[in-house]
Design a protein around this nucleic acid. Structure first.
Lengths: 200, 200
DNA sequence: CTCTACTATTCCTAACCGGAAGACATTCGA
DNA sequence: TCGAATGTCTTCCGGTTAGGAATAGTAGAG
């Protein structure tokens, strides 16, 4: 549980993706990352994937192999080395995971709600709700395609965890929406003390 | 909702902190960020705060004022300018918030659970649970100190949102723990078909 | 045969972090 | 009352990460 003298977590994430069997190119790795890692880590930029692979290869944690992908092109494919697996295990066991880091642009904007009018806040939250639903669908689809195989027990756990996160977000949004001053749609009703409804 | 040609979100976050009234020094701003922003954004490094302030000042979004802080020292305090408020409003209204980004080291490690033995996984999750509780306490304390004043309605919403997030994480962890192969401690109780409880 | 989408990789730049360092200030115990 | 810790305030630096765009071959659609 010491602080890690090793690589950044993203390196290990990439390395970890390679422990699920196949030999992958940087490009494929990116696809994978986009459909799995992105839900609870980052989907590293292409450039970063390649940077990581280069570094991992240098340290002997992955093995590169040139494969030809067409007449005048050669694709590099990577797989974990034994050393890579060992190092990954070491990292998992020895290093302090730290606490999750959340960059939540909606929460950030909600914090500044006093600068907007209620309708805008409402709109933003509703848009987020929709995005959330879409994201949830994507993740559900991915979960559905995870083999029941016990080899994929953990990816499945993580996916379910993600789903429950989206559900909780959904609830949170609803709660805020309910607490917000009611919408003002109706034509009737004289104005006056509108903007600042009875606080609570 | 176009893509933003403006500053990075962190700039606006700093700027936003200045819209809650007082005139603050970079140092104070850091304190604030550490106790609020950090829960749903990042707590920017000191160096970054000062960099942002310089940039914001250059663009006329904040106004700097030299105040003396003792006999032979001068502290620079900042407040939003009218232009700053306008720009912040513009940003809130016009730019696409994007989707939250979660960097969840526990989930990442859980994904790679097949490389660890169950006891280690369990340990990790339990440690996370404890950290979660601590974090929740901190946030609760902050919420308690937010004035009931309607000016602070939004910070309070965000804080409650955060609390609900921690609660949901707590549930998620428990669920995973229950789904994991049982621990081996107790002497009594025969084992059997526990690990895979009825799915929902 | 050309256009578009996909595969594959590299490059450049801005954002960001963390630590070191230097100052003065305040507080509190010896 | 002296001095040591501790707290306020700020800058500088190096390194990493992140994101976007540029490049280029390949395969399939029309």
């Amino acid at each position: 549980m010491s602080q890690d003298r090793g690589l950044p977590a993203t390196s290990y994430a990439v390395l970890g993706l390679l422990t699920f069997g196949r030999e992958l190119s940087g490009y494929e790795l990116k696809q994978w990352a986009d459909s799995t890692l992105r839900f609870y880590w980052t989907a590293p930029a292409m450039s970063q994937i390649y940077t990581e692979l280069k570094r991992l290869a240098e340290r002997g944690l992955v093995l590169a192999r040139e494969v030809d992908g067409g007449p005048s092109r050669t694709t590099t494919r990577y797989r974990v080395s034994a050393k890579g697996t060992r190092e990954l295990r070491r990292w998992l066991a020895d290093s302090d995971p730290g606490f999750p880091l959340l960059k939540h642009p909606i929460a950030l904007r909600l914090l500044l709600g006093h600068l907007l009018d209620p309708a805008q806040v409402r709109e933003m939250l509703e848009a987020y709700d929709a995005a959330l639903a879409a994201q949830r669908r994507d993740l559900q689809a991915i979960l559905d395609r995870i083999p029941k195989d016990p080899d994929f027990e953990f990816p499945a756990h993580v996916a379910r965890w993600g789903l429950s996160y989206y559900d909780s977000e959904n609830d949170a949004v609803s709660r805020v929406l309910r607490a917000l001053p009611e919408r003002v749609p109706e034509p009737a009703q004289a104005d006056g003390a509108a903007g600042t409804g009875p606080t609570r």
